[in-house]
Design a protein around this nucleic acid. Structure first.
Lengths: 334, 334
DNA sequence: GTGAAAGCGCTAACAG
DNA sequence: CTGTTAGCGCTTTCAC
């Protein structure tokens, strides 16, 4: 295997200087057509490929975009990354994806690391809330857009699903079908999006449904026990509403453990969607987040920042879609 | 926002030369303790962080490793990426993740792109098979290990789950519980791992179960129709065995559409596992791949290559684990 | 239009 | 032990 061709090799082969090759490479108009052709021929002949790292070193700007999500295994974030990747690709940018493992300390470290890599910008789903993440971003002077777990007023653009409206829609469905007691299965109180989901529900319900909330935390291993304990010491609700996908998993486990069946014995609806919710029997109603739109909008705004926009940071809420699949059954008024 | 501190700023602040700072940075022993201290103080004072790109440019070696998977949204690959990321991180390497979107052409492009980025090495799950991917890798002279969809003999290390043994185990369970006709729901004949799963089953069964196979392809939108058409024109099997997760999804849809129930009417077992298989009711038996081990082993071997190993490429099969959950019911002998 | 020279931030080779 | 010099692969300025 021979050494990779460098710009100098191309220059030599084309009988011009490296500077001229560089101009051709970047599409600089000030190059004679004849010269351009012979350079292009040399490039092809040597199978030359530019080194983007070296190029950007001198240029100062970077062709790298970063994304930080709390968890790669969560399909929600998987789809976010997939979306960003194809968008970045279309712009000729490479995407560096890292996961904060739901750890605040690691998030801080990753932001610094992304900065070391001189990424042009960053799309980040904060581990906790936008405020603390924004502080770290500002310290680095990094372009960024916040996504998913955001709470506005950070100076950065932030994109999330309209959780409030989403849960409200589910709430109305539960009210309409005569439910009296529902249990919200939530993760952590600290997460602004989780808080928004809860509040959206409560606001829509306004006391017409007795609403209980169990905060199960973010540790998957512990969630099941917390939910079980809660169900043990309260009376049986007529609907269960997990506000996040792992919460649905533990909820289903508990249903089975207790021999409860949905929708007959208890209604079920979930915030967040996945393909299997529609495939199993009975299928499960879900409030689906506009995942791809979230990714697209986040990237669009990041690009504007990279291109120099200095408009004040805006919060943007994208509408959810409620999929009715029959896991909310009509309850007769007691 | 002030310009980032460079190594020269640190040198100046510490009253030494840039070369000395560089030595301190890299932990070169040939630096006086006093000097080292003052350099470190300056680093801290200026909040200096080294630019890994510039460093590696000169050094020639790279601190980037790449991973290419066919699909980020598949939780299997999500977990692979997550595993690699934490391993790379521990080695001080950054991970660049890209997805080939199940497209052969894009895979070719991505390999070239990874090469442009001068990654130290690449973990790649081929879109089709190891052979064609290996050719492209060789052309770039890239260190790499193949994962998941591999077929050995490529000159590269390749790591996959022992699909043959995995499906064989499921086959024995089906035989033991008296099944006579099973339908294997497979994706694409071209994929070596899929072929191995089918063959493993057939070999274990050796005619004791009448085995039908439907190749549903890799296009999620089309799979359902293909399976439905197949079920329409064949007699009802007493067990269904999807060999990949999206195959299970469409299988479940068909079961519901036809009013078939598992395990009573038909047994069900899946190759590949996910948390929800154990949570739903009834839970579904699954052959789980050792995902994290696959990732770990792939990375370990890649590291050896990067460190200079020139041993001939090896294939490595890691054992699957069969989770019995009761979705295979006993059939009375007819 | 083109090329020589300088330099991006860092490391390597070698003198002192 | 430390600094000087050269240079990684590319871009940029500015003469010509």
């Amino acid at each position: 295997v021979t050494r990779k061709a460098s710009i100098r090799d191309v220059a030599e082969a084309a009988g011009v200087s490296a500077a001229t090759v560089s101009k051709v490479l970047r599409g600089d108009p000030g190059v004679h057509e004849t010269t351009r052709d012979s350079v292009n021929r040399a490039i092809r002949a040597l199978d030359y490929r530019i080194d983007p790292l070296a190029a950007n070193l001198r240029r100062g700007q970077r062709s790298l975009v970063g994304v930080i999500v709390p968890d790669f295994q969560n399909p929600f974030f998987g789809e976010i990354v997939a979306t960003l990747e194809s968008l970045a690709d279309a712009e000729g940018l490479a995407l560096v994806a890292m996961s904060s493992w739901e750890s605040d300390a690691r998030e801080a470290e990753l932001i610094r690391k992304m900065n070391d890599w001189r990424v042009a910008g960053l799309v980040i789903a904060p581990v906790v809330s936008g405020a603390v993440t924004a502080g770290r971003l500002a310290q680095c002077g990094l372009h960024a857009t916040l996504i998913d777990r955001t709470d506005g007023g950070t100076g950065y653009d932030s994109i999330s699903a309209d959780s409030t409206a989403g849960t409200a829609e589910a709430a109305r469905a539960l009210i309409a079908s005569g439910h009296r007691r529902v249990l919200l299965v939530a993760s952590s109180r600290e997460l602004p999006n989780m808080a928004a989901r809860v509040e959206g529900f409560l606001a829509a319900v306004r006391g017409r449904i007795e609403t209980d909330i169990v905060w199960c935390g973010r540790d998957r291993a512990a969630m099941g026990g917390i939910l079980a304990a809660h169900l043990d010491r309260t009376s049986r609700p007529d609907a269960l509403f997990p506000l996040f996908l792992p919460g649905l998993i533990v909820t289903l486990r508990e249903l089975r453990a207790r021999g409860w069946h949905y929708p007959a014995g208890v209604s079920l609806v979930c915030f967040d969607d996945a393909d299997w919710l529609a495939a199993i029997d009975p299928p499960i109603d879900a409030v689906a987040q506009p995942v791809r739109d979230l990714g697209r909008e986040a990237f669009r705004r990041l690009l504007l920042r990279i291109r120099g926009s200095t408009a004040p940071g805006e919060s943007c809420l994208l509408p959810c879609h409620f999929h009715r699949r029959g896991s909310i059954a009509a309850r007769s008024a007691t």
